[in-house]
Amino acid sequence: MTATSQTSVDFSKIDEVLKSYEYKKSNLIAILQKIQEIYRYLPLDAMTYVGTKIEGLSPATVYGVATFYAQFSLDPKGKYEIKLCDGTACHVRGSMPVLDAVRAKLNLPVGKSTTDDGMFSLETVSCLGACGLAPVVVINGDVYPKMTADAVKVALDSIIKQEKEA
């Protein structure tokens, strides 16, 4: 896995994060979570910086942790993060047609996770723990229950409309 397009990183912000976690190796995951909160992903420069500043770590080690956990993203995420559940319940209730509909609507072929305008990013997750509402989609924390291909298009349209008006 390699990361590509990168935003420039403000290292004073990262320094603040590192300081709040006392530059401790054992706080690495929390530090990376905080950085991801700021940038919505983990920029390479930020990981390199963390690996250089914390004793006992190296950029390669930090990168290893970042790529091990699914919660970390090495690519910029969209303003709207779409989490589409493909757990067993959602899958049998038809999450795949919903996924195809989202991909078609947002022009995201397999292997691409963020739209060119940076508005939407898409990931599938294994279970959101809301099987009674299957198939489930979560967009920026809002739950969209019992989705179908048509319903998800309506939901996305309303977000796009809202963004255009804003």
């Binding site: 990361a3 390479l44 390199t48 390669a60 080690t61 930090v62 990168y63 790529t67």
Partner: peptide
């Protein structure tokens, strides 16, 4: 004291490589 090599990714995709390949 400064591992330029590290594990990256997980499961069957695991590799040993310098940072970001």
């Amino acid at each position: 004291g400064h591992a330029v090599l590290g594990f990256a990714n997980r499961g069957s995709k695991t590799v040993v490589q310098p940072m970001n390949g």
